[in-house]
Design a protein around this nucleic acid. Structure first.
Lengths: 234, 234
DNA sequence: TGTGTTCTATTTGTCGACAAGAAAAATACA
DNA sequence: TGTATTTTTCTTGTCGACAAATAGAACACA
């Protein structure tokens, strides 16, 4: 098993343990540092974080609620697999949420929402410039999550976040061996989306969200077909 | 605090405790046997279910993940309040999910999905006939959840279930004092939806889902305006 | 060698206890 | 009497230990 380094583990405050474990494991799962299907050992985690199994367990229950790990009753728990056979359901949901959240952002945003959206937009552009694939994935997700927040519908935001997380795993899986880059075109589209949101042009925002989403899906599918299914066993 | 009777508590099997507590509390919350805002006491629950606090806690973490309870760090945990100020976001999400799930059911259902849908349809009709409001609410939700399952998109199904749960709470709140009944018309619309699904008429299913959803929303809003906000403090 | 059974080992689910935090109560002080 | 401070009480977060459940090893038997 990989002996993941923890950095420093200073004296943690009461109540912060669960959140810390949850956040860390979540990141490791989404970054594929913990591969899909790999087993999760409570005792091992307890040792690693220098705490008892109880808070570890609590964090695991939360992760299971997010669908990031799966628990076999009385038996092992492991990182959730990526369901390649039903990717189309993922894409369906993703496209719809892209549309809806962008549309609602145009409708409901307030002025104070725009700065953070613009900031993530710039971060994304910088990541493209630097050809930093991982940063692209992360900042793209953050950009769209910020738009969703501006739409102010927690139900949609919740689902969308989940989809973006799952997308982060899928993209990482395909970008880790092939150094593709997201086209510059996406940056321009992001800029258009911001403009439509700012102008409160609901229909245009919807349209842009749809086009943008479908292009991303197409891009991912292109990778898939080129790439074959070599990595799936991983 | 209400001394809720438990029925019999026979010797429970290992591992079944959490699920049992989770299911029971969930039902009590959705049926408003536990009012929004009412406090949840771990020790009390532990006594009631004759088990230690650990599995209780685990169930509570799950419920918090579902948004049914809210936890203040180091301090109390309570049943989530219903957000009346943002009901429109709820309705928006509900209408969209009605549409999408019905549409997808028309597209993706298999023959073995239809019997259970038809069964819930009949149960709902029976509940209308009997003027059993609570049964109406429950069977209506079950009917649409079954349709969503037939649509075979777990992302949408997950969100939709959550919305239907929340709707169950909202409706119960308004039907507990006013003995309204759902119009017979809804039964006919359900029948039309089944027909469209069976015929794989995607556009018609979408349209029916939209109309149906908007009628339900209108019905609820009618109750609201008539009813005023008398019960909100509850 | 192949198959079914028992035993062992590991991992999970549950328990009771303890300690930290926060609210409520009690006290001190003006 | 009203306000600030200490004390108490009550709830939660965490711990270490134990017992049940399962998988795999060891074994018996054909």
């Amino acid at each position: 098993m990989p002996d993941i380094d923890n950095g420093s583990l200073p004296e943690r405050k009461r109540g912060s343990g669960v959140k810390m474990v949850y956040d860390l494991l979540r990141d490791e799962i989404l970054d594929l540092k913990l591969a899909p299907g790999s087993p999760i050992d409570e005792v091992q985690l307890a040792e690693r974080f220098k705490m008892s199994r109880t808070p570890i367990r609590e964090a695991l229950v939360r992760l299971a609620g997010d669908g990031l790990i799966e628990t076999l009753p009385n038996r092992s728990t492991m990182v959730s697999n990526i369901d390649f056979l039903n990717l189309s359901t993922f894409f369906d949901a993703l496209v719809l949420m892209y549309r809806v959240t962008t549309r609602l952002a145009a409708q409901n945003h307030r002025l104070e929402d725009l700065p953070s959206i613009r900031r993530f937009h710039e971060d994304y552009a910088a990541a493209i410039e630097a050809r930093d694939t991982l940063a692209m994935i992360a900042t793209n997700a953050a950009f769209h999550a910020a738009i969703a927040e501006a739409g102010r519908n927690p139900y949609f935001t919740g689902l969308f976040r989940r989809l973006l997380d799952e997308g982060r795993r899928i993209l990482r899986l395909y970008y880790q061996s092939y150094d593709e880059h997201f086209p510059q075109q996406f940056v321009d589209e992001h800029a258009e989306m911001i403009a439509a949101i700012e102008a409160r042009d609901v229909d245009e925002a919807d349209r842009l969200g749809k086009v943008h989403a479908e292009q991303i899906v197409a891009q991912v599918q292109k990778l898939f077909s080129r790439n074959g299914k070599l990595d799936i066993a991983l």
